[in-house]
Computed example of a mutant assay.
Amino acid sequence: MIIGVTGSGGKLGRATVAELRERGHDVIGFDLTGPAGPGFVRVDFTDYGQTLDAFLGVTARHDGLDALVHLAALPVNGLVPDATTFDNNVSVSFHVLFAAHRAGIRRIVSASSITAMGFPFDVAPPALPVDESYTQANNTYGLGKVVEEAMAGQLVSWHPETSIAALRFTNVVDEAGYDTFERASDPDYRRDLLGTWIDARDGALAVALALANARPGFEVYNVAAPESGLSIPSRELAQRWFPGTPVAEDLGEFESLVSTRKLREQLGFVARHDWR
């Protein structure tokens, strides 16, 4: 396929471009900055005209896209004022999804976030591990992701062949970030992420699998490493962090407290990287 990747210059974007190219796809990266050449187009997604034009075709780059991966966003709260984070990300996602609809792109994977489901988890979730049915935004970045998921869930019905998968990524770690796991025995480490993490290359694998297994409709998948980023057993962490909260009887010893069962069972995801 010819696949466009928005936010191609980011940590996850770079890994996704590499993964898709290794699978034989032609990939066009779209971002504000990137390497000059046939695989990249500079686009400001706050401008709907640029967005639509970029998806319809760019001279000497592509004549149309078969699929789209939407990763572009302000990645966290704090880089700009909070309202700006929300305004930018929701507006950009609308431009991307609506332009894709107008351009006839029916296979879409869009980055959502663990922040749509309780981050920083000051309030106990209803059960552990937390699955895709739970939604609770506590900051403007997470609220934006909730809005983007709702928007995708509506837009997907505007054409019977459209498929949109929203991937709720947890903290993405690249190869240079593995030294942070020196704190893995500290029960406060990654507490606000429920101990979760995902290698950027495995996040890219999840994107590739979501594209390969696309079917009409809207789906949400949690994307985290199936095992936590701590050396403390998960049941012990659950009791420490959320005493009294129901825990699945079949929870694995170090299984992620953000459930990845849907990702593994429906898309066949098997992580290739482990901090251990």
Rank of each mutant, 00 (worst) to 15 (best):
E219D: 15
M1Y: 08
D122G: 15
W275M: 11
G10I: 02
E161Y: 05
V43W: 01
A152H: 09
L155M: 10
S234E: 09
A15L: 09
A150E: 12
G29S: 01
N139Q: 10
V270M: 03
L211V: 09
Q136H: 13
G244W: 13
V90R: 01
G195T: 13
L251N: 07
H95Y: 08
F254A: 10
V172L: 06
A248T: 01
A60N: 14
A271I: 09
L128P: 08
T33Q: 10
L267R: 03
L79M: 15
E22A: 15
V220R: 06
R276V: 09
V80W: 09
F218T: 06
F86E: 01
A184V: 12
A60I: 00
V130Q: 03
P187R: 13
V90Y: 04
E249D: 15
G64P: 08
E22N: 14
E227P: 00
D199R: 05
A73I: 02
G37M: 06
P126V: 06
D31H: 02
T180N: 13
D174Q: 07
V146A: 10
T135Q: 14
A73G: 05
A137V: 05
A152W: 10
T16I: 03
S259D: 00
V92F: 03
D53P: 00
G49P: 02
R215S: 14
H95W: 11
E132P: 02
A165R: 06
S133F: 00
L267F: 05
A176G: 13
N89W: 06
V223N: 06
V258Y: 02
T140P: 03
R21S: 09
E265Q: 13
L79A: 15
N139I: 06
S157I: 05
A103Y: 05
T16L: 01
E253V: 15
P35I: 07
D202C: 09
I105R: 09
V207R: 03
G142D: 04
E132W: 01
T85H: 01
F45D: 04
V76M: 13
T84A: 14
E132K: 02
G37T: 04
V223L: 09
T170S: 15
N171G: 12
K11W: 00
G244M: 12
H101C: 02
L65G: 06
D66W: 10
V156A: 10
L68K: 05
A166P: 00
E19A: 14
A103Q: 09
S8T: 02
E161G: 10
N89K: 05
A214F: 13
G177I: 04
S163H: 15
P233E: 12
R201A: 11
A165T: 11
E253R: 15
L143S: 07
G244I: 12
L205K: 14
S91E: 08
T135W: 08
L71T: 02
D66Y: 11
W241T: 10
L263F: 04
S228F: 03
S256L: 06
P129D: 12
M117T: 14
L205I: 12
L97M: 14
V17C: 14
I232K: 10
M117E: 04
R102A: 14
S256K: 03
G104A: 10
Y48M: 08
I164L: 09
V41H: 00
V92Q: 07
E249Q: 14
P129R: 13
S93F: 09
P233H: 11
G195K: 12
Y48P: 11
D179Q: 13
